[in-house]
């Protein structure tokens, strides 16, 4: 389990939307223990790639290996159970559940299946302290009993992160975790991702290049469904193709 070992590998992934190749023969590897950024202009196929890796979409072609095992044929819930957990680009919370319930329903996954409809939910009280801890980590303590729908956008993103962390995933896929956040929140979440990445691997899509520069060990650049280049921030930002493809579209 040493650092540097490959935890996730995509081999020649293709997603064909009725003739349009949103992901076009993409292959890349994510190394354990790193923070790996996936960048690229709007419509490059980043979210689609995430959907493929977590099996929310079925690849038209190609293979996905997680911890050396082929997960290409698994259903999305099974992928999550093996430790590959994603967040969504558009905030995904349970709107009419309280912040606390949002996190607890994730912690509840430790029980395995929760098909026990005959038991009182009081058995879930054991997760209370851990849930409050996670909520405190993302700075939402004072909102714990409010319904998630009432939170400001940035706070919903923070809640989503807390929910994802509740699963203790080995590999976390974050789709634009900072989008729509206020400046001070960005710093907190950046710190949180850095802390959370201890002992796990993070693959994230992010448009904020400052965040990418300061957080990530490796950067993969995707344009029009294809992998353009890969390397650390210095190498990638010096690449003329990247500057043209990425900056040319008008991202800052």
């Amino acid at each position: 389990m040493s650092q540097g070992e490959v935890i996730l590998e995509a081999r020649d992934l293709v997603k064909d939307f009725a003739g349009f190749l949103a992901v076009n023969h993409a292959s890349f590897k994510v190394k354990r223990g790193t923070i790996h950024a996936l960048i690229g202009p709007n419509g490059a196929g980043k979210t689609t790639l995430f959907n493929l890796l977590t099996k929310f979409l079925t690849p038209t072609q190609g293979q996905i290996l997680f911890k050396g095992e082929d997960i290409t044929a698994l259903p999305p819930a099974e992928v999550a159970r093996r430790g590959l957990v994603r967040s969504f680009q558009i905030s995904a919370v349970f709107p009419h559940l309280s912040v606390l319930d949002n996190v607890r329903v994730a912690l509840q996954r430790q029980r395995g299946g929760s098909f026990d409809f005959w038991r009182s939910r009081k058995v879930l009280e054991v997760y209370h302290d851990r849930a409050m801890q996670l909520i405190a980590d993302v700075g939402l303590t004072q909102y714990a009993n409010q319904p998630a729908v009432s939170l400001a956008y940035g706070r919903k993103r923070a809640l989503e992160l807390a929910t994802t962390l509740a699963l203790e995933p080995e590999l976390m896929l974050l789709d634009e975790p900072m989008a729509g956040m206020a400046h001070e929140d960005i710093e907190r979440i950046q710190e949180l991702i850095r802390t959370a990445s201890k002992g796990r691997t993070v693959l994230m899509v992010e448009h904020n290049l400052n965040v990418v520069a300061s957080l990530s060990d490796t950067i993969t650049v995707l344009t029009r469904g294809q992998i353009l280049t890969e390397g650390d921030y210095k190498t990638v930002s010096a690449n003329a193709d990247v500057q043209q493809a990425y900056m040319g579209v008008g991202h800052g």
Binding site: A80, S87, A92, P95, V105, F117, S120, R121, L167
Partner: peptide, 25 residues
């Protein structure tokens, strides 16, 4: 009001998210 009911409500609220948490919805 059971553990099952909690999962059910999360599915009602956002099925994709419930799946991404590992629930076979």
């Amino acid at each position: 009001h059971s553990p099952f009911g909690e999962v059910l409500k999360s599915i009602r609220e956002n099925e994709a998210r419930a799946i991404s948490l590992g629930y076979k919805t």
